[in-house]
Amino acid sequence: MRLIARHIRKDYGGRTVLKDCSYEFDAHAVYALMGPNGCGKSTFLRICSLLERPDSGDALFSDGATMLLPDLSLRRRITLVLARTGVFNTTVYRNAAYGLSIRGAGKAEIARKVKEALNFVGLGHKIDQHARTLSSGETQRLGIARALAVEPEILFLDEPTASVDQENTEIIESLIMKMRTDGKTMVIMTTHDRDQADRLADQVLVIRDGSITRH
């Protein structure tokens, strides 16, 4: 699946945050989105993950030559991991199972995929722990596992390593690296760390004055 951002514009209370953002994102590649605080990175991710409507322009998705309608079924093929995870007040397992259970997946399928996702982020041994008792690094990883459990074709990560320590940063980076080599998921992440962007991404992009440019 490809994502085409076409002339996306977004204003908040009369102030233009995104003026004209256009870019074509290829399937299976990793993109890092940079730019100063408040330049509109998170806004861009929310719009591209269909959580928010732009004031003009579009986030378009295509499968080969077919354009996809922005409906529930498309929304369920993409996932955004928020900068602050927002864990549900329940166990690690149930958090990770949420996306699958609202899709009506069967118990066995949920158990298999949740375990796989939690093992992938290194939380397999914390499956029954209460999610609100995790450290912030573990919480961030749970957020990623929760998103990966539904096997999205596009994964948006909003500052996945902003509030975690060195060790967790390395774990999360290696996860992204692994997704890049697996080549099954498009990843679009935001970061303030230039070196990290270079390490992880096939393409580094910058939002400046409301537009996206290649770095």
Partner: peptide
């Protein structure tokens, strides 16, 4: 409010 957003990001109606 992050809970609502989280549910939505995961594909909730």
């Amino acid at each position: 409010p992050i809970i609502r957003q989280a549910a939505r990001t995961l594909g909730a109606t």
